[in-house]
Design a protein around this nucleic acid. Structure first.
Lengths: 168, 168
DNA sequence: ATAGTTGCAAAAGCTTTGCAGTATG
DNA sequence: CATACTGCAAAGCTTTTGCAACTAT
């Protein structure tokens, strides 16, 4: 995903997906819904904000003078999750994050205990565990969630290596 | 854990652990704290309620006419989690559950897509993943959560092998 | 036209906090 | 007796809901 054309192609594909879903479910194609999708999409592409929460999304739109309500943000996020354009993660007690992206490579998450920053990683062993435990316990494993939580190691200046900020 | 003696021995060991922790941390040994520990302990042993939430614990004590506040319940649960006598699980958006048990072998959960039954399993590879990813991403991994979700395989009569019930 | 959507604010649900009173060490 | 802990209620936070107004179809 690099050239302007590729970005635009992806943008169109995501939008087509959403429209198809809305039509299938007899849901209206309101400007708010597309504005929210655009916002998420823009964040991912241009700001590299892959994980975000509902409140930030809402505030960001408000700050850009787009008139939208929290209720609509939550409602639209639900729709996007249902149609697979967005994934919802429960990273902690009160830390629900959404992840933009269509057909991302399977990955798991490491969450920083100090700042809640989310890092991603892949490990083939998790697939092996799924296979083995499915067999052993007589289940067809459909999906999983694996979160690691940890304290960041600090550099010589006491800054978190991961987020490059001071850690108390 | 079967005979009366074993139950009592375990009860005493759990209590000793808590006392040791409180003393180490210069925390007071208040009756409320022990009452809460007892309540959790009793639930596990006699009611087989391994997973519980803060509110039920609070209500159960209230109903038994023990004067205690939510604040104290939450405070004490934190202490018990810190000293390892209780584990805290995030099973969903607003589903925080605590799990009683001293030195339970580290385990993860497989959740049935059909009936939400929770099975437990252990796999040493998860520890290896934690070690490797902590190293790789510069974190000291403190804990993790791994949930597998799956559809149960059925026996000849169409019953779930895991829960032995009919599955639609 | 007409039902699905929206914005707003209030409510809900779980957890934490502030404070005055209590009891542990 | 000093101060950590407690109960209570109020406040916090994120998410949901109720309702009148609006709008996509």
């Amino acid at each position: 995903m690099h050239t302007v054309k590729q970005v635009e192609d992806n943008r169109q594909e995501v939008k087509r997906n959403f429209i198809a879903y809305l039509e299938k479910m007899n849901q209206r194609k309101t400007p708010e819904r597309f504005a929210i999708l655009d916002e998420i999409y823009m964040n991912e592409i241009y700001l590299d904000k892959k994980h975000f929460d509902a409140e930030s999304l809402f505030l960001h739109m408000k700050n850009n003078n787009y008139r939208v309500s929290r209720a609509t943000v939550y409602n639209t996020l639900d729709l996007l999750v249902e149609c697979g354009l967005v994934t919802k993660h429960q990273f902690g007690e009160n830390i629900t994050k959404y992840e933009a992206g269509l057909g991302n490579k399977q990955h798991d998450h490491l969450i920083c205990n100090k700042c809640n920053k989310v890092l991603e990683f892949c490990d083939p062993r998790i697939q092996q565990i799924k296979n083995m435990m499915g067999e052993l316990l007589h289940f067809e494993i459909t999906h999983h969630s694996l979160h690691l939580f940890g304290d960041p190691k600090l550099d010589a200046n006491g800054k978190c290596i991961a987020c490059e900020k001071e850690v108390k």
